[in-house]
Structure formats: structure tokens, C-alpha cells
Computed example of a mutant assay.
Amino acid sequence: MSKWLPLLLLFSALAGATPQRIVSLTPHITELLYLIGAGDRIVATDDASDTPPEARRLPHVANYRSINSEALLAQQPDLVVAWRSAQARMLEPVTRLGVPVFYSDPTDFASLSGEMRALGQLLGVTTQANAAADAFDARLTQLRERYSKKEPVRVFYQLWNPPLTSVSGIAWPAQAITLCGGNNVVGEAASPYPQIGMEEVLRANPQLIVAGSQHKAVLEHWRQWPMLEAVRRDALVLVNPDQLHRFTPRALNAVEALCQAIDAVRHR
């Protein structure tokens, strides 16, 4: 049984009608709702929802740290869509009042299409939602088939610096490295966002260093370590963080760019 079926049955019992006034509390949710054809029902978002451009004109009732419950309830929503891991506790005052909440909880690339399909069914836009999910699944499969069985390349992903922080496990960029056939040099770290000592990176000697940024200067500090293979090969690469760090189909644009960067190292 689909993990979404109990939620859909619950919403049917609670609401009795297709939701028409939706509050979206994170950027990826806002983008998904527009993608599946329900964007015109969003009445409020969070401060960071900026895609598509029309989302920027909506009232804001949340940011990455908090939710303004009073402002949210003033919008009289018949559905709130939120990020479970970050916002479930903050929404307790709202759920106690009986406002239905759909929790987004994508754990990996493959789960994203299921979420689109579930939202499509809940909101009565199954045709557009399923088409978007099918297109995403097809592209994800194509990328996996093209890159996942190639020769591994040692990759270090710089999430930010300082402190020097990377990604491991199920963190979205870490999954992207694996999907592309890369070997994440800190992939076994206990935390999904581990702080890394420079000595650890030097020992791992990555062949490619990647940062989620649009500013080339964020990687320049690596040039003081010319013995690193990535520096020697000038394999210091940026990927678009607005794509890779956001749980939407656009993430595959950045994944493809990352795959191409890893593939380029293979052929040097």
C-alpha cells in the first residue's frame, strides 16, 4: 500500500472537498504546487518561496526559523503543506485547531515523484501531477543508467566554509554524487552535514571538489593546497545551489551538471 494512501483518506474525511486555499511553508513545496497545477490556490507562503516569480507576490507567514500561526490562520486555509522534519512541531498549534496539514517528506530522489502524485490526487490535478512525475522519473532513470556504473571519482562537496562543512548519507547533494557514480570522500560520516578537518580532506585527496554556490571565490582557498589532485587538475567546480538543494525536479538540472563534471575528470 502506498505510504500516501492513509493521508489521502484522512484528508477526504476531514475536508470533504478539494482544498482551495493552500498555505505552502517551504520553497520546494511552493514550486511543486505550481508545477502540478495548483499554484493558483496558494494564498500564502514562506519568505524564501521565490519560484516561480509569481510566488513572490504572495503574503508570507513563515521563515526558516518560525511560523506565524496567527498570520497563517488569518488566511483561512483549508490545507497547509509543510516540511515534516523541520516544521511538524512548529505547526502543533495549527493542527490542534483542526486545520489539515499535508507533510512533505522526500527522503531521496525517487520519493519525489510519489509526493507529486499524492499531492495531485489530493488536490484534484492528477493529470498534470502524474505527467510531471512521469517526466521526472524518466529523467532520473536516464541519469542513473548513464552515469552510475562508470569508474568512481573521488569527490568532496563543500557545503560551506568556514567552518568547512560537507554532506554525507541521505543529504541531497550526497545522493547526487552517488547517482553520478562519484565516491563521496566523507560519505561514511555519522552526520548528514559533517564539519570536516582539512587534514581529512588532504588524506582523501579528492579528484574533484564541488561547491553549491554561484561565486567562484568560495573555492579559491583550495589553491593553497596544490598537492591535492583536484587542485592540480583545476577540478574545482560550482553547481547551482538553488537547484541542487531544493527538493524539486529542477534539482536534476544541477545533478546533470555534477555528473558532467565528474565525467570530465574521468576523461582527463
Rank of each mutant, 00 (worst) to 15 (best):
V99T: 12
V80Q: 02
Q142I: 05
W160P: 12
G124Y: 04
L140Y: 07
T141L: 14
F156S: 13
A86C: 04
G182H: 07
T95D: 04
R84P: 10
M90C: 01
G124S: 05
S148C: 03
V101G: 01
L179V: 09
M90Q: 11
Q76L: 08
L122C: 05
L123M: 06
E115W: 09
R146P: 08
P152Q: 00
R139H: 11
A71Q: 06
S166H: 03
V167A: 12
V167E: 06
A129K: 08
I177N: 04
L122F: 09
Y147F: 11
A133Q: 03
P100G: 06
L123E: 03
T178L: 14
A171W: 11
A171D: 11
V155P: 10
V153R: 04
A135L: 08
E115A: 00
D134A: 14
P77T: 00
G98E: 11
E115F: 09
S148D: 09
Y103K: 01
P173M: 15
G181C: 03
N68I: 05
G169D: 11
P173V: 08
V153A: 12
P100Y: 00
T126I: 05
G120K: 06
N161W: 09
I170T: 12
E151M: 00
S166F: 03
G169A: 15
F109M: 15
A71F: 03
P152F: 03
S168H: 08
P106A: 15
F136N: 12
G181Q: 04
P163Y: 05
R117T: 15
T126M: 03
K149L: 00
S148G: 04
W172Q: 15
Q76K: 12
L119K: 04
L79D: 05
A135Q: 10
R146D: 11
A132E: 13
W83M: 10
L91A: 02
G114A: 11
L179H: 03
P100S: 11
A133K: 03
A110N: 14
L143C: 07
R117N: 13
Q121W: 00
A171V: 06
F102T: 05
E115K: 12
R117Q: 10
I67V: 10
G98H: 04
A88N: 02
V167H: 06
R139E: 10
A176Y: 07
L164C: 11
L143T: 06
S111T: 00
G120M: 04
V125L: 06
L143S: 05
Q121G: 07
S148E: 08
I177P: 11
Y157K: 07
A138F: 02
V101S: 01
E145C: 09
G182W: 08
S166C: 06
A74W: 02
A110Y: 11
S69C: 04
L97M: 13
A132F: 05
A176S: 14
N161F: 03
D78I: 08
R117W: 01
G114E: 08
I67P: 01
D108K: 13
S111W: 07
L179Q: 02
N68S: 12
I170F: 15
L73G: 02
A110W: 15
T178P: 06
R144T: 02
E70T: 02
G114R: 13
Y103N: 03
E70K: 02
G182D: 13
E92V: 12
F102R: 01
D134K: 07
E115S: 09
S166G: 10
S69Q: 14
A74P: 02
V80A: 06
P173Y: 10
R84K: 15
G98Q: 09
T127W: 00
Q76H: 11
S111V: 02
A135E: 14
